[in-house]
Design a protein around this nucleic acid. Structure first.
Lengths: 155, 155
DNA sequence: CAGTATCCGGTGCGATACTG
DNA sequence: CAGTATCGCACCGGATACTG
């Protein structure tokens, strides 16, 4: 396969990064996956400015990754909570894969910040690439990559 | 678990993004995983400026994700090829997970740009989170997340 | 071909202030 | 608390030119 001969305009890695590749964006998704829902909680926990957070929350909502759910504290006006949609939760493998790489290659001497385990059995969890035919985890060597129907020759 | 109570300074997602989270970086890794090795090939295929590419290649090399391998074309001086190290190949699950999200949620009507299959059986490939105890693919609901030994309370 | 050096315009982003 | 508005600077990154 000559990957160089094909345009990457419609590469799905690229398209995904167009949506979540900006600075801060995946950290917001990470926090949302860990139960953070409110503006100020995101802001203080992640440590970014209001303007940027506001921008990212809007983009993520527009992209369908977060939904706003109104709520009202007694004595205050109605506000929005931000929750992951199904589309947002589908980024979970990306987060786990990023986490795994960090744990493996830039470990903190004190150990992982989060301990992720299969609730049912208590075993640690990992991100893998697998065969849909259930032949178990795969490595790059096990995988053949060919141009798909959407591949366009480079002009 | 109160995720909000913990510092994210040493979060492994964050540490990974510190290394590969800049614009262009993962696209370079993607191209490298597809066999691209030379400066000008990266430049023309991805479509970024020489200065930025030079910067990213250096950072990726410093991070141990790429290695330079000298080569010499007849009649020219020695130059460098850039190849993924083991550490670089370990980003493969991240790439596959990003690709998968793009294929699912921002599909190109023409179909995927790359067709990835298990060489041995011809089945499509997917990124999943799984239990190391071999209970198959997991969803966020199957996973318990607790602070690990490296978790630090938020000051 | 494989870069490095310089310039410079756009913008990302933090700080601050303001509003309901 | 949940944002919006404004300002100012740093820096990102494209264009161009130059070098081995």
């Amino acid at each position: 396969m000559d990957w160089l001969a094909f345009s990457t305009e419609n590469c799905s890695v690229q398209r995904t990064l167009d949506v979540v590749g900006e600075k801060w964006t995946l950290l917001i998704v990470r926090d949302a996956a860990n139960g953070v829902r409110r503006f100020d909680d995101f802001r203080r926990h992640i440590g970014l400015s209001e303007a940027v957070l506001s921008d990212r929350l809007r983009k993520l909502t527009d992209a369908g990754i977060l939904t706003t759910v109104p709520y009202r504290e007694p004595g205050s006006r109605s506000r929005n909570e931000y929750r992951l949609t199904r589309k947002g939760w589908d980024l979970w493998p990306v987060l786990v894969a990023l986490r795994q790489w960090g744990e493996t290659h830039t470990p903190d001497p004190a150990g992982p910040i989060l301990d992720m385990r299969h609730s049912a059995c208590g075993c640690p969890v990992r991100a893998v690439v697998e065969c849909t035919g259930e032949h178990g985890a795969l490595t790059p060597r096990d995988v053949t990559v060919e141009p798909g129907p959407g591949a366009r020759p480079l002009t």
